[in-house]
Design a protein around this nucleic acid. Sequence first.
DNA 1: ATAACTTACTTTGTATTACAAGGTATATTA
DNA 2: TAATATACCTTGTAATACAAAGTAAGTTAT
Lengths: 118, 118
Amino acid sequence: MKQFTKQIKKGLLELVILKLLNDEDLYGYSLIQKVKEKSNNSLDIKDGTLYPILYRLEDSNMIESYWEQIDTTRSKPRKYYKITDNGKTGLNDMLDEYLEISKGINLILNSEVNNNDL
Amino acid sequence: MKQFTKQIKKGLLELVILKLLNDEDLYGYSLIQKVKEKSNNSLDIKDGTLYPILYRLEDSNMIESYWEQIDTTRSKPRKYYKITDNGKTGLNDMLDEYLEISKGINLILNSEVNNNDL
DNA sequence: ATAACTTACTTTGTATTACAAGGTATATTA
DNA sequence: TAATATACCTTGTAATACAAAGTAAGTTAT
């Protein structure tokens, strides 16, 4: 994958995952698909990326997990993740920060050439 | 500084700097001010961040530098940076990537709760 | 004058994080 | 029954924003 793409995503995946878990409980594998689907295939999280993020979020009490067997035809349960109240607060803070930075970046990227010397 | 803010910026500062140098030649210190000013104070690059980025961009032939003494009252020249043709191509590629990822992220962040189970 | 501040450039070390690449094991489909 | 998809996990690596430190010249206030 392109190095730049990797870098753009730094930190943002955590935000994206929190946002999705704010809507509904999901298990790891389904989160990967959800991210891909909801982003219109623009975002593709690797499993080796996702799981460490989930453990991080759990360690910081933003989310919590539980094993559950919903599908009775399956012998193995899945590990579901659920956002906590703490996580909801964190999500809002992160959204504010993201919007602020993102606005600043777009101000620069969308500006037309404006060379006063010419 | 907030850790999340740091992470959001990963990789994006390179893009922002290239974009500004695409408009006009600038020296390091003025770039810091330019970024702050043009982003409406949302972005504040530290000098310890900027200079390594400039050296990286120069190593990859995206920009080139020259010492110039424009202000005759100053004894010391400033090190100006100029975007190369290679850098212009790189900038366009990065802009495309950024827009793609950014679109995907916003699709997720702007989506309202849509829990089909309820 | 001189102390304090700003301008301007540089370097070293640290923390963080996305991913590649490897692994395990069950479930489904050809 | 072989291949593929599902589902989880771990280790090591590369990249990068920043803190913190330094050097040195220019400017401003007392």
